[in-house]
Amino acid sequence: MPKLHVRVQRQRPDTQARYDHFDVEVPDDANVIDVIEACWRQDQNLMYRHACHHASCGTCAVRVDGKEVLPCIVPLAACKPGDMTIEPLRNFPVVGDLVVDVSAFFQRQAAAGMVITRDAEETIDGHPFEPSELLQPDGKLERRHYNRFENCVECGICLSACPTLSATDGFFGPAGLAAVHRAWEKTTDETERAALLDLADREGGVWQCHGAFECSEACPQDFDPAGAIMDLRRALIRRKVGALFGR
């Protein structure tokens, strides 16, 4: 059982941030979430978010030694031994300790309108799809593609990593713009597509990105929000140039 000295940022909305120190012992194969839980067992006033423990709900995101991670899937073996500093995400208002206020974030996600499931692009062994025969509620068979939850778990890590957001709250943010991109890719309805591009084109939209690509670097799910932003820019430029020539 490795012993660990943990510094955890403690804060309430009306107080200055400080660090509390915990000495914990966790199993060899523990993940960082188990370390946080061990601290909580010592002090139940410690506020942190968690639910699924397998990188699907996206609630637990924090900064470990300065880097944004989902602690539920980071093994201790991947961290430096002996001690660890745990802090809340940046660029979010702090509710308490490691808990940040995600309301503004989810309001933007809702505005972006991405549906969280999609058709699977390829089979498990990497082949292109043949629609499968799946059961309908009435027991009849229907040929359709398997569906998948989107890879983005809406954990907020990309917002914390984004240098633009550390300078302004006005920016829609990588996850939100990636969601706009996804929604735009998925729909074939031309008015809806135009409205989504308008959303991306507004102040605070894709043009406010400074292209540091930190969002895509930090994403625990390989979602590439920066790529999505640049893709939207290209679509917007095409539309604007097209408009110049009366198209």
């Binding site: 968690h50 639910a51 609630t59």
Partner: peptide, 14 residues
Amino acid sequence: RGEFSNATTGRNHC
């Protein structure tokens, strides 16, 4: 007492 759905529900087999 914690995050919504943090306990049995959050961590179940889905």
